[in-house]
Structures are given as structure tokens and as C-alpha cells.
Design a protein around this nucleic acid. Structure first.
Lengths: 168, 168, 168, 168
DNA sequence: TTTT
DNA sequence: TTTT
């Protein structure tokens, strides 16, 4: 009845932007969050948490986040399940984010440069300095938008993600 | 580098109290947390989240929580992995709690009565009304206490949990 | 750039519902939140935090919350200032809530019964058991809705709150 | 009964380190946290929140934080009151932090360089890259340590802060 | 399987 | 696999 997560960590890879059959943007990435203690070998381990963002926030994350960057993520924990190709039910825990803060701009170090450049367009609404991005959390929650939707339970619009892309 | 979760939900079963080989108390339970929206069939789904508590907090949770009770849980998300008996690596996501609030006392409804009664002892420090329990979060975090420890990587003290109890 | 508060506590009085000149509902109440330790006299003190809710959430809180009830509040901290009648600038710290959970239903004890009864109407959408209420946080945040607005900087619609009601 | 705050913002000034009469370190600073929307003049306002840290965390914050730096703060809201020199009761809202993350290192820009240099010593345990600091939250909460203590209700040890330093 |  |  209340489910709130706040994380700060670094992306382990560039975010992946996809679209559901009906054209809704979904971006996923993994955040490495250091544990607050060291293990018996005195190494600091990390947890690797799957983040999912939808719609406008998905587009913005895909545009501005890169592997290695530091980000803050606010959202809720959700468990999704599907049957894998061996007929076994698999459970996946994800953070459905409704707010993502870019804690490093592209030129403040911290992350790998993106080889292929900034892929035109999206930078019209470029954030200066610390970035900012969010979703209508309330609508997600109480309106009809299902941000945990199964992309295959969708209407008949053209499909632009292939089967082996999903479940993401 | 920051990992904070706050949940409110209901226990799906009575909590389970175990001890590591070295005698450290560990209590686990599952919290059902309703999602903030309904699915396409207009049903409200829930996420079932695994909660782990250690030491004094584990004892208190085992004493005061029961199936059906409403509780608030504060902690951090952690991913544990182990190789199952088919040699496959399994990932388990858990909430390591450092603060648990009992939002219903035993007689305010909301939960099943415990058939076997209150099993002596522990109720000396019984909370009245809304309960309260916590752990030294700081110590967990920065002292040497590893609340994510694998109970089998432990010293040579007598073992009181059997193999098939673990990983919990 | 990130501002998140989560509280659980009890209302010190019935919530107050008002309307801005342009007809926007605002409900305020105070939440008593026990401190996690006792003072030198071994008494447990509490902090009394001012909560502000807007629009639909304001209506729901006014309908379902009462003095003494336990509630969870999610929101952000905001500092408002105004010049009092002595020409002195006064700073007020408030929690602008976008999610409120009713942790006790009217008949689960915990709070004073409301003497005057349930004041018609609003109970059509009455929650059963644990209540639920929220706002479009995203819209608040990124749309044009200013949930920290000064009710006097409003348009020319009929006024239904008097001067001495404000600042709330 | 639950009181949790998470903030990300920038310091408006260098932190101030003081000591209570009994020698306990206290560091205070103000965090500017941008609001998630713009006002009617299309300007982004900020809330200026008073942060208080104690003991080791106080020392670390005093050593590593500077005006302009970006930091994440975890803690609880507390309201302190005192009678000012006009005999008027004044209420002060503060965030008692138990975890502070330094989101910019000294040389990653974002903040003013400290003119007078790094004042010897404390840098033995210097964090590399993103900094890390915390307190034993649990002990604060449930042990006898009163991190909201009034420094004047203290034992008879030598006093090293003068009256006009307090209340901080 | 991973980030700094 | 689940709670109300």
C-alpha cells in the first residue's frame, strides 16, 4: 500500500530504449549501487538493480544517461513473472522509476563518452548542469496508465520490437 | 551509494525465525504490497516482497508479527545469488530491513490469531498499541556486522539450521 | 533536486478543508510523529509536522481522516514565508503530500469518533479497510499546477475563505 | 513513528563545525533543493533546508563538504524550539542526518574551491571519487545517544562554544 | 554478466 | 505460492 525506493548509483551500461507494440517508449538500465559495508575480503560489493522507465521519462533517460554515469532513481519495486522457454516461471524484480536525476552532466567526467555522438534531435530540451526528469507518478498510479503493462497484451498497432527482445 | 526502501503491506504468512550456525537470529517474511493501480481486469494486484531482519529486530518481528498484519518496513534492496541443485545460478531480491513498525496490535483485527499462543518469554518487552522495532542501521552499514551474510560462511559453532532450510 | 519525505504518525486534530479563491481544495492537518528515542526524562517526545494536501487528495483526507487516526504521508518538504502583522517575516515548514494512506479505518479504534457523524455525500467512494488516496505527483511537479501556491495570488473567482483563515 | 527524509541539493555555504560543552561534534549546513516546478514567473525556486549532523558524520561533513557542492542527505525531520531574546518561542525545523553522500569530489567542479585550503589532518580517511559518510542510525535511535540534544543540558565538561553560537 |  |  506504500512502496517507495530511492537509489543512487552508476549505470553498468548504456540505457536501452524500446517501444511497445502500441508505441509506448520503455527504457531499461541497470544501476550499480554500492553496499554500505565491505565483505569478509574487505571488498565493497554492489547490488545491480534493474530500472524501468516509461514514456517521456524513458526518452529523456535514453537521451541523457550513459554507462558509468551517476544517477538518482525514485520509484517502486515491482515483481514481474513470465514463463521461460523451458516452461519454468521466472520472477524478475524491477524498479519502476517515476523520477530520475542525472547527477553528472556529460562533461563532468564519471562516465564513458558515447562513441557515436549525441544522435540528433533530442537535445532541444537539454538540461544544463544537473539534469532532471520525471513522470506523472500520480497518473501512473491512479489513472489508467499501466506502467507495469505486459507489452504483448497490447492493441493491434504495428509491432516494432521483436519477440526475443521481450520480456525486457 | 544510496539504497533506501520504505514499504507498507501485510504479511502473507507468519514470520520464520532461524539462527545462523554462529547463533545470529534471522527472521524472514513476505510482505504483500498492493499496487497503486488496477490491472486490465480491474483487479488490484500486489507485489510480494521478501523481507529479512537480523538480530534483535529479528527476534522482535518473530514475536510480534503474524500473517495478515499490517507493517511498515524500512531497509535496503539486496540481491543474493546461489547455485541451485541443478547447477543454475539463482538470483533472489530481498529487502534487508533495519526498521519495522507494527501498524496493528494483536487485538486490532487485521490478522489471524496465532493458534499456538504466545510461546513464553519474549513478551516482557511487549509493545503496547502500535509496535516499534529497529536495528542499528549504522552498525550494519559501517561496522563489521554483515547482515547479508551467508549463514554457511560462518565459524565452527553448533549448527541449528539444516541444509534444506537454506538459503532462506 | 530530490526531496522526499515519508512519515507515519497520528493526527493531532481533525483535518481542515478550505478552498482557494479560485475554488481549489486545500486540506491541512498536523501529524504527531514519535521520535525514535526517549529524552533524558525517559519520555518519548514527538514532532508535530504540518501537512498540506491539494485537490482530490485534499477532499479525500478531509472525508476520511480524523483526530487520532494513524496515517502514512508521502511528500516533499517546503518552506513558505509571509510577513506577519508585526511586519516580521515568518517561515513555515510544511510537508506537501502527494500520497496519504489511512492506516486505520473508522471502526478499528485508534482515533476519536467524530461526534457529528459522517456529514453526507463524500462517502460514495468510501474505501473499505485500509484507505488509499493520492495526487498526480507528476503533474504537480512538472505540469503547471502549483501546489505551493499562495491562495491570494489567484484569479477573480468568488472568495470562500476569509482573511484570518490564511496563511493556512 | 516513521520519519524519513531524502534530499539532494547544494550547500549554500561552507558547513559549520562546533562542539557541545561535552565535546560532541555537530556540523550544520543548509541545502538548497530545487523545487520540481517553476513559479508563475517561470523561475525555479528552491527550499533551503537546515541539516544537522553529529559525531563522526559531523567531522566528515566538515572535512569534505563545501559551499556549492552537491550532496544527498538522509535523515529525519525534527522541530526544535527555544525562546528568543524577546521572550518569544521560536520553532526551527531541521533535518537530523544519519547519512550524507558527497556527489561531487573536490575537483569535479560544481562548487567553489575553498580559499583557505584543506586545513590539515582529517584527510587521512579521505574518500576517493564519490564520498561516503554515515552515522549509526540505530544507535541514535534506540541507544542512549540523543542527537537532538540541547547542548546546554549537558554535563560539567569544559565549554567550547559561546552562548551566541547557540541554538545552532 | 556488470558501474566508479 | 501468497495478505486484506
Amino acid at each position: 500500500m506504500l512502496n517507495r525506493v530511492i537509489l543512487i548509483g552508476r549505470l553498468t551500461r548504456d540505457p536501452e530504449l524500446r517501444y511497445t507494440p502500441s508505441g509506448v517508449a520503455v527504457t531499461t538500465f541497470t544501476l550499480a549501487v554500492d553496499r554500505p559495508f565491505t565483505n569478509q575480503q574487505r571488498e565493497r560489493e554492489a547490488d545491480f538493480l534493474n530500472i524501468v522507465t516509461w514514456r517521456q521519462l524513458a526518452e529523456t533517460c535514453a537521451n541523457y544517461l550513459r554507462k558509468g554515469r551517476l544517477a538518482a532513481v525514485e520509484g517502486r519495486i515491482q515483481i514481474r513473472n513470465y514463463d521461460n522457454n523451458e516452461g519454468r516461471r521466472v520472477y524478475v524484480t524491477e524498479i519502476i522509476a517515476d523520477n530520475v536525476r542525472f547527477l553528472e552532466s556529460a562533461n563532468s567526467g564519471g562516465g564513458g563518452q558515447r562513441e557515436e555522438g549525441m544522435s540528433g534531435g533530442g537535445y532541444g530540451q537539454s538540461p544544463q548542469g544537473q539534469g532532471y526528469a520525471s513522470t506523472s507518478q500520480g497518473q501512473q498510479r491512479y489513472g489508467g496508465q499501466r506502467d507495469n503493462q505486459d507489452p504483448f497484451q497490447d492493441d493491434g498497432k504495428p509491432i516494432d520490437i521483436s519477440d526475443d527482445d521481450l520480456p525486457f
